[in-house]
Design a protein around this nucleic acid. Structure first.
Length: 664
RNA sequence: GCCGGUGUAGCUCAGCGGUAGAGCAGCGGUUUUGUAAACCGCUGGUCGGGGGUUCAAUUCCCUUCACCGGCUCCA
């Protein structure tokens, strides 16, 4: 192990190098200059804000020695990447602190995530809880205040180092190094800075040995003092390598920022997001419930949310009938035999609800709709002229989800998919996928939802020949490109029966959920021996697509609730207008208004309670009713209504007709 | 399923070895009100379920169920 040269520029200053700055200009520096030196050259202000470097497109430590012709960008606190430096380094500070507080703790990895970082530990005989966080934070603060320097340490002899790790009991580090030993591995150490006075009496040994170190490829901030604001947020668990057969690790989540104000703002954002949680909003607005008596993950839709769902289903039905889909209805259960044919008993049985034998027959609750749609397709002969055939159904399915996975409406055990299956020829595949992508965009735009797409390709374990996979993957890729949709490639993440495009949506807290999906299926057409007659009279196997746009109505609704923060748009609101009489004597006129609105299919209710107008407004406002009509003597005299918008407040008085007009 | 946490009135929460309390909601009354909360009164809980320790358990222990944060898995 040898410490790399950082600021110990030797006497070799004769040579010069040129580095290229982001604006294309070059800058001459003495050789062995670091990024820090470059920043110093440019301005003292820049030096102060410098966090790290981007050299030839790769992030690097500020104190990296620059080479001739390097393209260098200095990352300052204004650049988004600076937070990666900060958070990654704070994760290390956390790890160092945890090993101080719990000497038996073994370290693993600690990456940066959205808005923060985590670090996983193996701590024998100790279970962390949130109550332990303050003392860890205090230890971290001591490290920050000590102003320790992050320095890179080359691992010159990986095998030696692995032995050392094993001796220290750091078996996770040993395993990681074993994996990376050929890739020029490095450690990062936390070092006491050289004393500022320098001079002869300086204790040089202080800066020679790291206080603490961790296998890491970096990059890092230069000094722990740069961590201006951090907070540990939660404790949870995770498996080593994400594999439940491996050790269970304890994970600490945290966040870090360059200023206290940023941290405060972030914590406030989280709080705000938590207020949007659909489970919380459901209690406030009586949207849905689950019941211990019925079982977890089984949803009871209350009137307000059921109303919204009914509108969504209408919208969905019209959209599909207009786009070449035919609606079907299928049962909820089927004999075991069907699921044997489809392969579900083989591949999906763990997730299926079983029923008792009925008349000596075993029935299973459906976890998917596809075999049923296949039966409809297969009940008659088909010509190539009929294809594509698109069968759609709001199909309610039941899946046994592990108890820990359940989550409000977003992850449940019984849910309704807006499912459809397209049977087509191989030649029609690209067009069909394009059409579905278009439909998905129509739907998500309608609900103001942002989404991202992922293409998942062939997994290790799969059925079907490579040629078919090539065809299907290429078709999906081509459709994505034709649609101009940016996507992320998820290699090896496809279903065993075919590749797929998944559409991801984010909830209020930034958690990502799968919404729409488009999947090619080689399995079912084979197992059910589907066929159609081609133009030359031969029997061919159709290509089958599964697709859902909402995904499940339950999950989609969860995301809608969070997206709208409970303030549903006018057309989805069960109560659209609250008519608020100032006092009893205005009730009659209010009834006239209610009738007039009813004729126009506007849903209005009169608040006849003996409350003051302020209270009535407050209650309607909390309930997020889109419009409130305030009715008193003035309105009756003028034959008008005073309109209040839940967002914009008092809009003044207008005629009913003008109000109706404004709704359009 | 795993690790950690939580479970007290419809909701939000306090209490914590001596069999429970607040605010809001609900109900009854008074008030007839002008753009986010009028006033008074009342009702409401086998303190998630079961078991144990104890003279005594909502409080301590065990177990079970559900929920929350993650992991894993997934629409």
């Amino acid at each position: 192990m040898s410490e790399s040269a950082s600021s110990n520029k030797s006497s070799v200053e004769s040579k010069v190098i040129n580095v290229i700055l982001p604006d294309g200009s070059t800058r001459q520096l003495s050789s062995l200059s670091t990024g820090e030196d470059l920043a110093k050259e440019i301005s003292s202000r820049l030096l102060k804000d410098s966090i790290g470097l981007e050299i030839n497109g790769e992030l690097a430590d500020l104190k990296t020695i620059l080479k001739d012709q390097d393209k260098v960008k200095i990352i300052t606190i204004k650049d988004a990447q600076s937070l990666e430096f900060l958070r990654h380094s704070t994760a290390h500070i956390l790890a160092c602190a945890v090993q101080k507080v719990y000497p038996q703790a073994k370290i693993t990895i600690g990456p940066v995530i959205q808005d923060g970082f985590y670090y996983d530990f193996y701590i024998p005989d100790t279970n962390l809880s949130t109550e332990d966080l303050p003392k860890i934070e205090a230890e971290m603060q001591r490290i920050v205040d000590a102003g320790l320097e992050f320095r890179k340490i080359q691992i010159t002899n990986p095998d030696e180092q692995i032995k050392e790790f094993i001796q220290q009991g750091e078996k996770f580090k040993a395993e990681l190094l074993e994996k990376f030993k050929a890739e020029n591995p490095t450690q990062y150490g936390l070092f006491h800075p050289p004393s500022p006075e320098g001079g002869a009496n300086q204790d040089t040994s202080l800066s020679q040995d790291p206080v603490w170190s961790d296998l890491c490829r970096g990059p890092h901030i230069a000094n722990t003092k740069q961590v201006k604001a951090f907070k540990l947020l939660s404790v949870s668990s995770a498996y080593w390598h994400g594999d439940e057969k491996q050790e269970s690790l304890q994970r600490i989540y945290g966040t870090a920022w360059f200023s206290k104000a940023d941290l405060e703002a972030y914590l406030q954002r989280i709080e705000e997001a938590e207020r949007r949680d659909h489970r919380k909003l459901s209690r406030q607005h009586e949207l849905f419930s689950t019941h211990d008596e019925a079982g977890p993950g089984l949803i009871f839709w209350h009137p307000k949310l059921a109303f919204l769902r009914a509108r969504i289903e209408e919208f969905w039905k019209d959209l599909h009938e207009d786009n070449g889909y035919e609606l079907v209805f299928t049962p909820h259960i089927a004999r075991r035999e069907l699921w044997e044919t489809s392969g579900h008993t083989e591949f999906y049985m763990d997730n299926m609800f079983q029923m008792k034998q009925i008349d000596e027959q075993e029935y299973l609750l459906k976890p998917m709709n596809c075999p049923f749609h296949v039966l409809i397709f297969d009940s008659t002969r088909h010509s190539y002229r009929e294809l594509p055939i698109r069968l759609a159904e709001m199909g309610t399915v039941y899946r046994f989800e592990r108890s820990g996975a359940l989550h409000g409406l977003a992850r449940v055990r019984g849910f309704t998919q807006d499912d459809a299956h397209v049977f087509c020829t191989p030649n029609q595949l690209v067009d069909e996928v394009c059409a579905i992508i278009k439909l998905i965009d129509i739907v998500y735009s309608k609900f103001d939802l942002k989404y991202s797409a992922e293409l998942s390709t062939r997994p290790e374990e799969r059925i079907g020949e490579d040629g078919i996979w090539d065809m299907a993957e290429n078709a999906l890729k081509k459709a994505l490109e034709q649609s101009g949709l940016a996507y992320q490639l998820n290699e090896g993440d496809g279903a065993f029966y075919g590749p797929k495009i998944d559409f991801k949506l984010q909830d209020a807290l930034g958690r990502s959920w799968q919404g729409a999906t488009i999947q090619v299926d080689f399995n079912l057409p084979n197992r059910f021996e589907l066929k159609y007659t081609s133009s030359d009279g031969n029997l061919e196997k159709p290509v089958m697509l599964h697709r859902a746009i909402f995904g499940s109505l339950e999950r989609f609704t969860a995301l809608l609730i969070e997206n709208y923060a409970g303030a549903f748009p006018f057309w989805l609101s069960q109560k659209q207008v609250a008519i608020l009489p100032i006092s009893d004597r205005h009730n009659e006129y209010c009834k006239e208004i209610k009738e007039a609105l009813k004729k126009l299919k506007v849903r209005a209710n009169i608040d006849e309670r003996a409350e003051k107008i302020g209270a009535k407004i407050r209650d309607a406002q909390i309930e997020q009713i889109p419009y409130m009509l305030v009715i008193g003597d003035k309105e009756i005299d003028e034959k008008k209504i005073s309109v209040r918008d839940r967002r914009k407040g008092d809009l003044g008085s207008m005629s009913i007709d003008d109000f109706i007009e404004s709704l359009k």
